[in-house]
Each structure stands twice: as structure tokens, then as C-alpha cells.
């Protein structure tokens, strides 16, 4: 059994024939070859698979692929524009918020979903927005610093 999925991924219109039992994360990684979105648990518990769907950070591992029908999706590969890193990406690098890098794409997507909606978050709001993204390397401190610093830069550049 298969169905036709239509959606927008990283500004491109996608039309694909899919097995509806497939999870969205598998479609993204194995069919779209966008392996930046990671799988840490496949149970919605770690946030490594976070993407932005219609403006919200979601765990793509929990979603059946057809839930993407008609949506606008951004994955980590779509954050860099015209060869220029997004400010959040730059701050993750500059502030030492990256270690092994496996949680990083999910962390950046959760951060971006937050800052897209709330350009002036408090530290508590950042902590809350990242509460579903597990990082075992950094202890989170430098990730929070990176997000706060990115927010400040984005406000200044706006």
C-alpha cells in the first residue's frame, strides 16, 4: 500500500509515493537523504529528530509520514541560506555549544522555533524550549548561552 505525499521541505515542493506506515523521520533521512535529522530514541523522548513543521518544533520520529501532508517543513539542512550560516548556528559554534554533535541539529531546530516566535526569550523560556532535547555532552550551559547570544544578535540585526 502506498500513498502520495505532498509537502514543502526546505523551500522545495516534494511529491513522493510513500508507505503510510513509515515514520516521518525515516522519510526525511532515507528517502530525502537529509541525514542531519538524527534518531536518538525513536520514541519522542530525546529531541534528536526535531524539525520545524508549520512553525512548530516537532519530533519527526513520532509522526506517521502522512502527517506531513500539506505542511511546510524545515530540517537542519534548510537553516543555512545561500551558503551563510544562520546566527543560531554561528553562535552554537562560537560559544562551544557543540561537542559530539549528535543532538546539535535537534537543538538548533528547537532553538530556531523558539526564536522565530519569541525574539526576546528569558533564560527560563530557553530552558523550557530545550527541555525536550537531551544532550549528554555539554551539560547545557553553553547551549543556553548560544541561544541567548543568538537572540541578542538577531534582535540587533533585525
Amino acid at each position: 500500500m502506498s500513498e502520495i505525499l505532498k509537502c514543502i521541505i526546505n523551500d522545495e515542493e516534494i511529491e513522493a509515493c510513500v508507505d503510510p506506515e513509515m515514520r516521518l523521520v525515516d522519510f526525511i533521512r532515507e528517502r530525502m537523504h537529509l541525514t542531519g535529522t538524527k534518531i536518538g530514541c525513536k520514541k519522542g523522548e530525546c529531541g534528536a529528530c526535531t524539525i520545524i513543521m508549520d512553525g512548530n518544533a516537532v519530533n519527526s520520529c513520532l509522526l506517521p509520514v502522512m502527517r506531513a501532508e500539506g505542511t511546510v517543513i524545515q530540517t537542519i539542512e534548510g537553516v543555512e541560506k545561500d551558503g551563510r550560516l544562520h546566527v543560531i548556528q554561528e553562535e552554537f559554534i562560537n560559544k562551544g555549544a557543540i561537542q559530539c554533535g549528535f543532538c546539535t541539529p535537534g537543538m538548533i531546530m528547537s532553538s530556531k522555533a523558539l526564536l522565530d516566535k519569541n525574539p526576546s526569550p528569558t533564560t527560563d523560556e530557553v530552558k523550557e524550549a530545550l527541555g525536550g532535547n537531551i544532550c549528554r555532552c555539554t551539560g547545557y550551559k553553553k547551549i543556553e548561552e548560544a541561544v541567548m547570544s543568538a537572540a541578542k544578535r538577531l534582535r540587533e540585526e533585525a
Binding site: T35, I76, E80, E90, I98, G101, F102
Partner: peptide
């Protein structure tokens, strides 16, 4: 010196490969 890590770009863009990939 606090040199930014040289794999930061790879990891921040999701381009860097892991065994899962």
C-alpha cells in the same frame, strides 16, 4: 585560545556524518 572547533560547521549544519547516517 578559544579557537572555535574545526568540526563546528559540519555539526551545526547536519552535514557531518555519523555511523547511523
Amino acid at each position: 585560545k578559544d579557537i572555535p572547533r574545526n568540526d563546528g560547521y559540519d555539526k551545526a549544519t547536519g552535514r557531518g556524518l555519523f555511523t547511523h547516517d
